[in-house]
């Protein structure tokens, strides 16, 4: 079995259980449901709320550099700290945090393979104790926007057919049958997908236990939809977190050279006046 292109970006649960006390390591939980951390988390883990601590809360944007530096400093993280991130829903927002940390140049960031689900299912230790760590003076790099796609870039690429557009939402969201995941609020005016996009739901990259599928399985999954890394790849979903997960798979596990996450995603495209929309199930 081939190894992932960058196996160093994954931590497995057994390894983390052994290394959790390492002071050069910081464990961070980032959940979709921000109450999950309070129920019980990995000992030593701090919790970040994606909706208040990992975005600009005024204008729609990723976390500005000064706020990221403040968050990391207050979390006791410096430039040399190894950060292991995990969360619920198979690491959706953990991947979102990973993506932002890479944008700001943090060297050693890893996702816990299997996330919160696997840790709990294996009966590993949990606590409700909230740790605190001495503050640091974290200095982030300027944002590397080559990891992020903006609307104009996606519009140009879709028009030219020059990239592989990967829609990682559910098939019903892709077709336009529903405007948001079942049970979640509708956040767009139109359903459907960006014309030319291929439907490859994020969950197809995961095994039942929440871990990532093998290199060969992932390669076959994307190649089956014509996504093989020979062209630039743009991933998108509804608000950018599920697409961070697929971005992670394509960029770090498969090692494709040019993969960007369009975090504006369907809540931007599906609300645009005059934007073309594809409808119907994937071909």
């Amino acid at each position: 079995m081939a190894q992932y292109a960058h196996p160093e970006v994954l931590a497995d649960t057994a390894w983390l259980a052994e290394h959790a006390p390492d002071p050069s390591l910081r464990i961070v939980e980032v959940d979709v449901d921000t109450s999950a951390y309070d129920l019980g988390h990995i000992p030593g883990a701090i919790g970040w709320a994606w909706n208040t601590q990992l975005c600009d809360t005024v204008q729609r944007d990723i976390l500005p550099k000064p706020q990221l530096e403040k968050l990391l400093s207050e979390s006791g993280i410096d430039q040399d700290t190894a950060i292991v991130i995990y969360g619920d829903s198979n690491n959706w927002f953990a991947a979102w945090a990973f993506w932002q940390l890479k944008i700001y140049g943090h060297k050693d960031v890893r996702l816990l393979n299997g996330g919160r689900k696997k840790w709990i299912a294996e009966g590993r230790e949990l606590t409700t104790d909230v740790p605190s760590y001495p503050s640091t003076g974290y200095h982030a790099a300027d944002p590397d926007l080559s990891l992020r796609a903006f609307l104009r870039q996606v519009q140009d690429a879709a028009r030219a057919g020059s990239v592989s557009l990967v829609d990682v939402r559910s098939p019903q969201e892709f077709s336009g049958e529903i405007l948001a995941p079942p049970g979640l609020p509708e956040t767009c005016q139109r359903g459907g997908h960006i014309p030319g996009a291929r439907s490859i739901p994020w969950g197809k990259a995961c095994a039942d236990d929440g871990t990532f599928k093998s290199f060969e399985e992932l390669q076959a999954l994307y190649a089956g939809e014509g996504v093989d890394g020979s062209r630039p790849i743009i991933t998108y979903c509804r608000i950018g977190e599920r697409s961070s997960h697929s971005w992670f798979v394509l960029k770090y596990l498969l090692g494709y050279p040019n993969v960007v996450n369009y975090d504006g995603s369907w809540t931007e495209w599906g609300n645009l006046v005059g934007a073309p929309v594809g409808r119907g199930a994937a071909a």
Partner: peptide
């Protein structure tokens, strides 16, 4: 579902795409 300490936890998610609906 699982037991955690003295409490019982039940989570419901929508399978596709897997968003948590209740915890």
């Amino acid at each position: 579902s699982y037991k955690l300490g003295e409490r019982y936890v039940c989570e419901a998610d929508n399978v596709s795409p897997g968003a948590i609906l209740a915890r």
